[in-house]
Design a binder for these strands. Structure first.
Length: 441
RNA sequence: CGGGGCGUAGCGCAGCCUGGUAGCGCAUCUGCUUUGGGAGCAGAGGGUCGCAAGUUCGAAUCUUGCCGCCCCGACCA
């Protein structure tokens, strides 16, 4: 993409409404525009990152055996009356009427609808296990939206729903999601710690929130410090095998959000030098809820014994749009965003320091063509801005690499390659820079 | 939903208290100079002062109502 033809409305000054760094940087980098409280338009740069994050989540869900579908944003109120949640939900749910006075709602989540789909088609235990997911815009009419995309009213979410014959099967489904989440967050450059969460009326140990530690997190969290650096199992696990040991390794150490925190246990189980008390951002939540929806909505399957029973369900959410905020909170500096390689909106920036200079233009065009052909998705700054402004913009939008090509270097047969994360710059020949970069593709 | 605050040019703000018909910086446009970390000079364009009533000869300024947005708290993916 040539910057001269792209739409990148960067701001030099910080809008006053933005209080936290990720919100400020998303506005300044021209990623989002607020259209109403908690409702944002995704400008091209932000949209590209959103799609990258979405794709990482999709690949990890698919790897774990989940099947993608797409459910609508609008749902019938009658469906929610079946589970009793239409009246239980309160003013957070946006209620709408169509021209026929039919009551609709803009979905804040999709348990009822997925249960309705499941019960319409699945009748036998032989069709299980099943895990269906979608990524869709949701709406929750928060009393007080804030922190930009981290707590909007409209938000993009991946939600998966598992169906199993019994609780043992549901636990296996839960473990698959648990591992898939660790892998997804790791690929996004995040250190996400699973923490035991409130299971509500169901009870048991099958609910975890995945928390990214950040100063601007909205909740206080407490955990064993080793959990932060434990890393993810990676894709090469036996998804049909026993994942319990991998899960146990991460759930045996103390980790709790404020509402689940037990100070006495914390001090008893965690050595003083390993006790971590920090702020955290919730980026995922997995939950086993058994028959909560399948029983009232009569989603039953026939077991091997010929008996019908309500299917055992769990749900697994990831706040995809929120993740952009979380990633920035975890990865930025004074100059701007530092995108992890896997989600950067462009693979690198090619900075032409003197457009119109034939030698520099030629070098830049060659680099741009080669990098594009290699699939690196370069953003080529071919504008007539001053060098300082170009550097500032590149640092702000946080592309992982900057290939700087100017008249002095070109005369000497040299270009400069800068790594955004470290600020390290290296001078080398254009060919060496290109082969180095394309080797990464 | 309680408490506080703010709406004046694309962005950041001043002007309001003490009414006299709108200003600064950045951005934008033109010209010249400049050219490796958000340039300089000169000129230009751009605003029904959130909306609506009211007071007044006259309202960005005073009064009332409404709308929108932000912050703190309670609540939440």
């Amino acid at each position: 993409m040539r910057l001269s033809r792209f739409f990148l409305p960067v701001l030099k000054e910080t809008p006053t409404e933005a209080q936290i760094v990720s919100h400020r940087l998303m506005l300044r980098a021209g990623m989002i525009r607020q259209e109403a409280a908690g409702i944002y338009a995704w400008l091209p740069l932000g949209f590209r990152v959103l799609k990258k994050v979405e794709q990482v989540v999709r690949e990890e869900m698919d790897r774990a055996g989940a099947i993608e579908l797409l459910m609508p944003t609008l749902q019938l109120a009658d469906l929610w009356r079946e589970s009793g949640r239409y009246d239980a939900y309160g003013p957070e749910m946006l209620r709408i009427k169509d021209r026929h006075e039919r009551e609709l709602l803009y979905g804040p989540t999709n348990e009822e609808m997925i249960t309705e789909i499941f019960r319409a088609y699945v009748k036998s235990y032989k069709s299980l296990p099943l895990n269906l997911y979608h990524m869709q815009w949701k709406f929750r009419d928060e009393q007080r939206p804030r922190f930009g995309v981290m707590r909007g009213r409209e938000f993009y979410m991946k939600d998966a729903y598992s169906f199993d014959l019994d609780e043992a099967g549901a636990r296996r489904a839960y473990n698959r999601m648990f591992i898939a989440y660790l892998n997804a967050f790791a690929r996004l450059g995040l250190k996400a710690v699973p923490m035991r969460a409130d299971t509500g009326p169901i009870g048991g140990d099958l609910s975890h929130e995945f928390i990214v530690l950040a100063e601007t997190g909205e909740s206080q969290v407490f955990c064993h410090g080793d959990l932060v650096e434990m890393g993810a199992p990676g894709p090469d696990v036996d998804w049909d095998g026993d994942l319990q040991p991998l899960v146990d390794r991460r759930t045996s150490l103390y980790a709790a959000t404020e509402e689940m925190h037990d100070p006495a246990r914390f001090e008893r189980e965690v050595p003083a030098d390993r006790r971590l008390s920090a702020r955290g951002i919730e980026v995922g939540h997995i939950f086993y809820f058994g028959e909560k929806y399948s029983a009232p909505m009569r989603a039953v399957v026939t077991g091997p014994d010929g008996q019908d029973r309500p299917v055992q369900m769990g749900s697994y959410g990831i706040g995809v749009s929120r993740l952009l905020g979380a990633i920035i909170e975890a990865s930025h500096d004074a100059a701007g965003v530092i995108w992890p390689d896997g989600v950067a909106p462009f693979g690198l920036g090619v900075v032409n320091l003197k457009p119109g200079d034939p030698a520099v233009d030629t070098a830049c065009e060659r680099a741009y063509a080669a990098l594009s052909a290699a699939g690196l998705e370069p953003l080529y700054d071919d504008t007539f801005e001053r060098a300082g402004a170009k550097f500032a913009t590149m640092d702000l939008i946080g592309l992982p690499w900057q290939l700087v090509i100017g008249p002095k270097g070109t005369a000497a047969g040299e270009v400069e390659l800068k790594r955004r994360a470290t600020g390290q710059r290296e001078t080398l020949s254009l060919e060496a820079a290109l082969s180095r970069l394309t080797a990464k593709a």
